[in-house]
């Protein structure tokens, strides 16, 4: 009756699925190895810590390194309190109802908006209407809105994982809701919050479209939040797109990849430390 026995279908299926998985992993490996192989040679002390010359054709990437550092920090300074506050409100201060559904729906939608739309919005709202011009602040605020859903979701998940009994104990010991949140809920949700922060930093570092229209692309060190900055991603894009210097483009890409790798490794290390300490 059957052309192929179930046993053979099983073998074929496993083979195909395994091959697909392997292909996915190989692509990942290829991207990382390719960029590092081409770019590692360029990376040296001078490349990292000197100013670029001739539009980036020569010299280093120091200002873009600083820009890449400052922009996520600024975004987090805004988004972290807002995101954690939202998550605390959703989990501890209200019951499920129409309001929470609206807030969740808004968060989900915000998470799906493409970065180019954030760029357009930041450009028209912060840069043009609020007259900030292309600057660190406009970029930071735009990125803050972009990462807000990530922070809200990861924090909410982490808070929900804190056992209900901890709250009961805290209340029964005469704690107010706020004291319970600060002393019991948030400390125990910290690993999850840290993960959200790391994910957000990664997204900020890799972002180009939203940044280029809000923070600009000035190739010098910013003196205040009202100065334009260029991040590594933007710098890399400009170098590659305009064919300024393939060598420096690869170098910048390698620095980017290494930053992302370090960020991920740090996150996992932190998580394991937290978990290890608690049990």
């Amino acid at each position: 009756m059957r052309l192929v026995s179930p046993k053979w279908t099983q073998r074929i299926a496993v083979g195909v699925l395994g091959a697909a998985t392997l292909a996915t992993l190989l692509i990942l490996l290829f991207i990382i190895v390719f960029v590092l192989e081409k770019g590692l040679r360029t990376i040296c002390w001078n490349f990292l810590f000197t100013d670029p010359q001739d539009m980036g054709r020569a010299g280093g990437i120091f200002p873009t390194l600083i820009g890449t550092l400052l922009l996520p920090l600024l975004a987090l300074a805004v988004a972290l309190p807002l995101g954690v506050g939202t998550a605390v409100y959703l989990t501890e201060y209200t019951r499920e109802g129409r309001l929470t559904r609206i807030i969740r729906f808004g968060t989900d939608c915000l998470a799906g908006i493409p970065s180019i739309i954030f760029g357009l919005f930041g450009f028209i709202f912060f840069v043009t209407i609020l007259k900030m011009g292309w600057c660190l602040l406009a970029g930071g605020l735009t990125l803050a809105i972009m990462i807000l859903p990530t922070i809200i979701r990861t924090t909410e998940e982490a808070i929900r994982a804190v056992p209900y009994s901890y709250r009961e104990v805290s209340f029964s010991l005469g704690a107010t809701r706020w004291a319970t949140v600060v002393k019991v809920v948030l400390p125990n949700a910290l690993p999850g919050i840290v993960t959200g922060v790391m994910l957000s930093i990664g997204r900020c570092i890799g972002e180009t479209a939203a940044v280029i229209f809000t923070a600009g692309q000035a190739l010098h060190l910013p003196h205040s939040v009202f100065d334009s900055v260029r991040t590594m991603s933007v710098h890399f894009y400009i170098l590659a797109r305009e064919g300024i210097s393939a060598k420096n483009a690869y170098g910048t890409a390698a620095v980017l990849i290494i930053s992302i790798l370090l960020l991920n490794v740090t996150t996992y290390w932190l998580m394991h430390r937290f978990i290890g300490r608690r049990t």
Partner: peptide
Amino acid sequence: LLAGIPSVVYGFI
């Protein structure tokens, strides 16, 4: 981690 790689890097490759 693949999701964390900047899209410009994908484009360049």
